[in-house]
């Protein structure tokens, strides 16, 4: 494997990481506030559809992005209603949201576009434009580092850079601001926040809304960045991989970057080399695609590290003495 191949794989890994990272951070906000969210998949899916549909109809990626965020927020609102307002089962709500998105996207897509559930191909202004980082061309000549900068880091679309910037931003918000302190507290012991005179309900709604926005961005990137249009079931389990990454990351932002990059890298490698030939054994592509899930189970089992979710996660908050 030469250096150029390595760079290509890294470049691809960064792109494949982006929806995972955005969804993972989305889940981080929700779960840190004490609301489990296995509906990341559904929110991303409906956002991808909205971006594809609105982008195709208006030709504007920005309107597509807006539609994606709104669609994702709508599903987030359902989750908020069940989890916060009606104190329902958050896991079941997440399952329902995933099916709702899976059904609605095809139902609406078929009746609007008649293309068997896909949206018309997006082109030009309906997709995210690539951004060349300053000095990329000038530095290309520098050995080793130059190509890394020009080939891998430069030349991505806006959501990639937004996702990367969101990692330190999330860390800062979580550990350096009042909102972050309260968010962490409400996920571990909501009564502490309530008795301190801060509204548990409002904090959790804020977290759910952030989750909605980030899933919206992730979905828009899938349809208008990574691909050119929406395809039926295009999230393909990425919401669950993001969830796995969140557990892998122990609900911490920097580790989320590491985990999603790892999973993105695995996908990139699997795409490039469907069968990895290790001499005596050949690793089949199916194994590579299942690897994130296998790794997550191993992490969950506590054989490597230990995942400690927010303590109040999944529990509706009921006032008690």
């Amino acid at each position: 494997m030469d250096y150029a191949t390595v760079l290509q794989i890294l470049d691809s890994a960064l792109r494949l990481m982006t929806p995972l990272l955005l969804a993972c951070l989305a889940g981080l906000f929700s779960e840190r506030s004490g609301i489990f969210d296995i509906g990341l998949e559904g929110k991303m899916l409906i956002a991808a559809f909205a971006a594809g549909a609105a982008g195709a109809l208006t030709g504007s990626v920005w309107l597509g992005l807006g539609a994606a965020v709104l669609a994702s927020l709508a599903l987030a609102a359902i989750h908020g209603m069940t989890a916060i307002t009606f104190r329902g089962n958050q896991l079941i709500s997440g399952v329902a949201i995933n099916f709702l998105a899976s059904g609605l996207t095809v139902l609406l897509g078929q009746s609007w576009f008649g293309l068997g559930g896909r949206t018309p191909a997006l082109e030009g202004g309906a997709r995210f434009a690539t951004i060349t980082l300053p000095g990329a061309e000038a530095l290309r000549g520098v050995p080793v580092v130059g190509p890394l900068y020009a080939e891998v880091l430069s030349g991505h679309t806006l959501p990639v850079y937004v996702a990367l910037a969101l990692v330190p931003a999330t860390w800062w918000l979580l550990y350096r601001t009042r909102f972050g302190l309260r968010l962490r507290a409400v996920g571990d012991n909501p009564a502490s926040v309530d008795t301190a005179g801060v509204s548990v309900v409002r904090l959790r709604w804020a977290a759910v809304a952030i989750t909605g926005v980030l899933c919206g961005l992730a979905g828009a990137y899938l349809a208008a960045g990574l691909s050119a249009g929406f395809v039926k079931e295009m999230t393909a389990g990425r919401g669950y991989i993001a969830l796995a990454a969140l557990i892998f990351a122990n609900w911490m932002p920097w580790r989320a970057l590491g985990a999603t990059f790892l999973f993105g890298l695995m996908e990139a490698v699997a795409n490039r080399y469907p069968e990895i030939d290790l001499g005596p054994v050949t690793i089949p592509s199916m194994f590579m695609s299942a690897l994130p899930y296998i790794l997550t189970v191993i992490i969950l089992a506590g054989f490597i590290g230990r995942a400690t979710p927010p303590r109040a996660g999944g529990e509706p908050y009921v006032k008690e003495r």
Partner: peptide, 15 residues
């Protein structure tokens, strides 16, 4: 009504 995995200081200023 304390957050068990936060420091005393963080618990005191919370809210």
């Amino acid at each position: 009504k304390l957050v068990p995995n936060m420091t005393v200081l963080e618990n005191v200023i919370l809210g």
